[in-house]
């Protein structure tokens, strides 16, 4: 298809792009806006490495065409910082020394952040449920669960 112009709201800024409207949001964020936090993992909404938030809801950016974003606010891991400082959730993940390779971690963080927005004090089962679509191969799971629990109740 021929290119169309979209004015995306990403991390609080209006970002105009000219792209094929079928392009998944992930490639627009990475290639047009040079936001490297959302990672390509499968292109099939199976692993969660590309997770971003649309109006605060965690979505898989690898399967959402840019044309479907509309006026929704896109938040990537780069947009979680508050006044240049990592959010409480990110800080908790650092303190837990959770990542190994870390490739899955921005996606996990965005899923967990969406959970904490909706459910500020989740149970262990709710955290596991919310992260079940995010795969991690290094085995950071128990540290992530601990960190999300520790960040519960803080602004995310």
């Amino acid at each position: 298809m021929s290119d169309q112009r979209f004015e995306l709201k990403v991390n609080g800024r209006i970002s105009p792009v000219n792209v094929d409207p079928t392009t998944p949001l992930l490639y627009v964020l990475r290639d047009e806006l040079e936001l490297d936090g959302p990672h390509f993992g499968c292109g099939l909404a199976q692993c969660g490495a590309c997770t971003v938030q649309l109006d605060g809801v965690a979505v898989r950016s690898c399967v959402i065409p840019v044309s479907a974003v509309g006026t929704q606010e896109v938040t990537t891991i780069e947009g979680l910082a508050v006044e240049g400082k990592m959010s409480a959730l990110q800080t908790a993940l650092v303190e837990a020394q959770a990542p190994q390779c870390g490739y899955c971690m921005p996606g996990i963080t965005m899923s967990a952040s969406a959970l904490l927005k909706e459910t500020p004090h989740p149970t262990d089962a709710q955290i596991r449920q919310a992260l079940d679509g995010n795969l991690c191969r290094c085995g950071s799971h128990t540290r992530v669960l601990r960190a999300v629990k520790a960040a519960a109740g803080s602004p995310t």
């Binding site: 936001l35 490297d36 390509f40 891991i77 780069e78 650092v94 020394q97 870390g102």
Partner: peptide, 21 residues
């Protein structure tokens, strides 16, 4: 000592440079 890993902060703010990036 459990010195915090040097690579971890950038792996959590999205700025880490993977070969994919």
């Amino acid at each position: 000592k459990s010195i915090p890993r040097v690579d971890i902060p950038a792996k959590l703010d999205g700025s880490y440079r993977y070969v994919q990036n």
